[in-house]
C-alpha cells in the first residue's frame, strides 16, 4: 500500500515537472516577443529592451526556466500583461465562484449519472438502457456554450422562471449586505442563516450548473453502466443470487461497490474537464469566475494568465487523480496488492 502511494506520488511529481516545462515554453519562449506584448503596442524600442531585461528574457533558457520554476513553487506565477496584477492573486479571486459551480455540477452529475447508469446496466439492451444511453451520449455531445444560450432563452426569455447572468440579483446585492467567508454565496448564506441570500444564489446557480453538468452526466452514466455490466457478469453475482440475496441488494451493494472505483476516476476526470468547461460557459452566464477570466485572457493573448490557469488545472488534475487512487484503494481491498 505504501509503495503504491509512493509510486503514484513520484509519478505526480514527474508529471508536474513536465507541466512546468510545457507552460514555461508556452508562456515565455514561443510567443514571438513577450516583451513587446508586455509594454503594449505603442512602446518604443528602448522600452521593449528595458522590458526584456525586466522579464529576464536575455538570460539563457535554463536560467529563465529555473527562475520560472522557483517562482511557481514560491507562489509567484507571473504578472498578467493586461492588468499587471499577479496571476496567482487573480486566480485566487476568481476561483471560488467557479468552485461553487464545479461542486454543484459534480453533485448533479453523480445524482443523475449513477442511477441512470445502474438502470442501464440492469436493463441492458432493453428500452431503459437505450434511453439512458441516449441521455448519456447527448450529454457528451451537446456543445455547452450552445446549451447555455438555449437554456437562457428558454428559462429566462420565454418562461421568465430563472434569472440570467451574475451570481445574485443586482437589486438584491444593493439592498443586502453579503457576508464574505467561504467565497461560495450558498455556503455563506447557509452559515449565516441568510435564506434570502441562499435562495438568490441558488437561482443564479441552477442554469450554469446544469449546463456544466451535461458532459459529466454523460461520462458518469456510461462509466457506471459499463463497469456495472462487467461486474454483473462476474461469478460472484450469480453466487450471490444463488444465496438468495435480493436483486435490490445485489444491484445497490454487491455490484455497485466494485463499480464505484472506475466511476470515481471518471468523476475526478470530469471535474477537471468541467474546470476547463467553465471557459466556455462562464462568459455566457456572466459568471465572475476563473473560466471568464481565462476566456478574457485568451482574447487578450495574456500568456502569463493563460498559463497560470493551465498550471492550476493541471495541478488540480494531478491532485484529483491522487485522491482517486486513495478512494480506489479504500473501495477495493485488492488494489494494495498491485
Amino acid at each position: 500500500m505504501r509503495t503504491f502511494l509512493l509510486r503514484r506520488l513520484l509519478l505526480a511529481v514527474v508529471v508536474l515537472f513536465g507541466v512546468s516545462v510545457f507552460t514555461f515554453l508556452a508562456a515565455r519562449v514561443v510567443p514571438a516577443d513577450a516583451a513587446a506584448k508586455w509594454v503594449g503596442p505603442k512602446a518604443t524600442a528602448a522600452q521593449i529592451a528595458r522590458a526584456r531585461i525586466y522579464l529576464g528574457l536575455n538570460d539563457p533558457l535554463p536560467v529563465q526556466y529555473l527562475r520560472y520554476l522557483s517562482g511557481l513553487v514560491r507562489g509567484d506565477w507571473g504578472e498578467s500583461v493586461v492588468t499587471h496584477q499577479p496571476v496567482l492573486g487573480d486566480i485566487k479571486a476568481y476561483l471560488p465562484p467557479s468552485l461553487e459551480l464545479l461542486v454543484l455540477s459534480s453533485l448533479l452529475a453523480m445524482a443523475v449519472g449513477i442511477p441512470l447508469g445502474i438502470l442501464s446496466a440492469r436493463y441492458q439492451d432493453r428500452i431503459p438502457d437505450q434511453l439512458s444511453r441516449l441521455v448519456a451520449i447527448t450529454g457528451v455531445s451537446v456543445p455547452s456554450f450552445w446549451l447555455a444560450l438555449l437554456l437562457q432563452l428558454l428559462f429566462f426569455q420565454k418562461l421568465k422562471l430563472l434569472p440570467v447572468g451574475g451570481r445574485l440579483d443586482s437589486v438584491f446585492r444593493l439592498a443586502h449586505s453579503v457576508p464574505v467567508m467561504t467565497g461560495s454565496y450558498v455556503l455563506d448564506g447557509l452559515l449565516a442563516g441568510d435564506w434570502a441570500l441562499v435562495g438568490s444564489a441558488l437561482k443564479h446557480l441552477i442554469l450554469p450548473a446544469v449546463t456544466l453538468a451535461a458532459y459529466p452526466i454523460g461520462l458518469v452514466t456510461r462509466m457506471v453502466r459499463s463497469s456495472m455490466t462487467e461486474v454483473l457478469g462476474e461469478d460472484h453475482i450469480r453466487a450471490a443470487r444463488a444465496m438468495g440475496i435480493p436483486n435490490r441488494t445485489i444491484l445497490g451493494r454487491y455490484a455497485l461497490k466494485p463499480a464505484m472505483g472506475p466511476t470515481a476516476t471518471v468523476l475526478a476526470l470530469s471535474m477537471a474537464y468541467s474546470l476547463s468547461g467553465t471557459f466556455l460557459i462562464e462568459a455566457v452566464f456572466a459568471w465572475p469566475g476563473l473560466g471568464r477570466y481565462a476566456a478574457g485572457a485568451l482574447i487578450a493573448a495574456d500568456y502569463p494568465a493563460i498559463m497560470g490557469v493551465t498550471v492550476l488545472v493541471a495541478i488540480a488534475y494531478v491532485v484529483l487523480n491522487l485522491i482517486v487512487d486513495l478512494v480506489h484503494a479504500w473501495l477495493d481491498p485488492r488494489i494494495s496488492l498491485r
Binding site: 507541466v19 477537471a272 474546470l275 485568451l298
Partner: peptide, 15 residues
C-alpha cells in the same frame, strides 16, 4: 495530465 480541451486551448493560444 491536462484535459484535452484545456490542452488544445493552451496550445491554440500559444500558436
Amino acid at each position: 495530465s491536462f484535459p484535452p480541451l484545456l490542452l488544445a486551448i493552451a496550445i491554440g493560444a500559444m500558436l
